[in-house]
């Protein structure tokens, strides 16, 4: 069961649909992708390639690589992307993306 996210959006604005792991999420348009996924209740972004341990955003400034996701077959840092209509994203497939 999915629990409510502890990350709350304090304002509301227009939202767009994004596909995450095959499911549709409605996220604030133009917002930071990592922040939007956290607020939508996504707890695990990737698994560490060495131990398989779950990981999620740590630094929000492009330095730690724990927010890696896959977009159009390329592993990207979610904290360096913005939400736009129709993004199709998932956990990185190969080895946690590293």
């Amino acid at each position: 069961m999915k629990t409510a996210s502890p990350f709350l959006e304090i304002e509301s604005g227009p939202r767009v649909d994004v596909t995450w792991e095959g499911k549709t999420l409605s996220l604030p348009e133009g917002s930071n992708l990592a922040a939007a996924l956290l607020a939508a209740g996504v707890e695990v972004f990737r698994h560490n390639p060495v131990s398989g341990a779950p990981r999620a955003p740590f630094c929000m400034m492009g330095a730690c690589f724990d927010c890696l996701i896959e977009l159009d077959g390329v592993t990207r840092q979610a904290c360096m992307l913005e939400v736009s209509e129709g993004l199709v994203i998932s956990r990185p497939s190969e080895q946690g993306g590293a």
Binding site: P6, F7, L8, E9, I10, E11, P28, S31, N32, A35, A36, L38, A39, E43, V44, F45, P54, R55, A56, P57, F58, C59, M60, M61
Partner: peptide, 19 residues
């Protein structure tokens, strides 16, 4: 997951209005 830097917490607020 759930552990972040304080700077990250602040970036969430500044950039995205997420607390």
């Amino acid at each position: 997951p759930g552990v972040m830097t304080a700077g990250a917490g602040q970036i969430l607020l500044k950039q995205s209005g997420v607390v």
